[in-house]
């Protein structure tokens, strides 16, 4: 399968990439290419120009900001997210999430920025980044803005990125609280039928100090389950009746219907995962 012809521009710096995007109508960024190549081959996308951002070293950096926030370059690969010790120390849930993505080969090439911009409803990173309250930094030749991942993702394969805009960095507030992150798929490399990322911290007296829970592969975009979060917060962890919370809180969901699973099935799987994962977190079991 051959993509339609396009011009190829290799950017050596962020500024040069932004200039290429601005000067060429119908251009598109190529990051790891693991989602883009299939789109090009099937000709769902037919860009006139591809701007390659693989040769820009600064996009591969992982830094710790002065306020303790993790700053992860757009081109940091899934492999790097698993291996990088700064990420694992400050946001272990993110490293665990990357382990669930695709396979060894795809993880060596696919990037965190590419996965966010692709906005696949079943992408593994998205629920985790939402639970972490992560933000993205978006740049054009003459602007720079920041927004929550939760706001950036609009729907299936749709984001708020505008023409000429590039994602350069992901900002992750550190979180060392107990967590669970799981995906359910028929085969491990498949996209999820249901996925859950949950971060729960308990106070000394056994109350739920904080709970942040997000799900993916259910609706047109991953989202936080705020009804469950607020039902848990402040409660004594031992006396929570999870079933009574999860049932009603997921009642309104209208999950996807595709060849991987119908809506009722997806909801059933999600409820099972929530009840087991939150049960473990409330009892204080470490991951």
């Amino acid at each position: 399968m051959y993509p339609k012809s396009f011009e190829y521009l290799r950017a050596k710096s962020v500024d040069q990439a932004l200039q290429y995007l601005k000067d060429n109508e119908g251009s598109r960024v190529i990051a790891g290419g693991q989602s883009l190549l299939p789109m090009l081959k099937s000709r769902l996308y037919q860009p006139t120009v591809l701007v390659d951002i693989n040769f820009i070293p600064e996009l591969r950096e992982v830094k710790l900001g002065s306020n303790g926030d993790l700053r992860i370059g757009a081109m940091v690969t899934h492999y790097d997210v698993i291996e990088n010790s700064t990420i694992r120390e400050n946001a272990p849930i993110l490293s665990s999430t990357a382990e669930n993505i695709a396979d060894v080969q795809i993880r060596n090439r696919g990037t965190i920025g590419g996965s966010i911009c692709e906005a696949d409803p079943s992408a593994d990173y998205l629920p985790t980044l939402m639970a972490l309250d992560a933000r993205v930094v978006l740049k054009t030749t003459d602007s720079s803005r920041e927004m929550k991942v939760e706001d950036f993702i609009q729907g299936p394969f749709e984001t708020l990125a505008e023409d000429g805009e590039m994602l350069v960095e992901v900002i992750v507030p550190p979180s060392k609280a107990n967590y669970r992150v799981e995906k359910y798929a028929r085969r491990k490399a498949d996209f999820a039928i249901a996925s859950v990322a949950a971060i729960v911290s308990l106070s000394k007296d056994g109350k739920v100090a904080d709970a942040r829970i997000a799900t993916g592969a259910q609706q047109d975009k991953p989202h936080r389950l705020r009804e469950i979060e607020s039902a848990l917060k402040g409660k004594a962890s031992k006396s929570v009746n999870l079933e009574a919370i999860i049932g009603p809180a997921t009642e309104e969901l209208e999950p996807l219907d595709d060849l991987h699973g119908g809506p009722e099935y997806r909801k059933h799987v999600l409820r099972g995962m929530l009840s087991r994962m939150l049960g473990d977190l409330l009892s204080g079991k470490e991951a």
Partner: peptide, 11 residues
């Protein structure tokens, strides 16, 4: 290891 059908030659 990477999958060479998922990469452009020019890259």
């Amino acid at each position: 290891p990477v999958k060479s059908c998922q990469i452009l030659a020019v890259q």
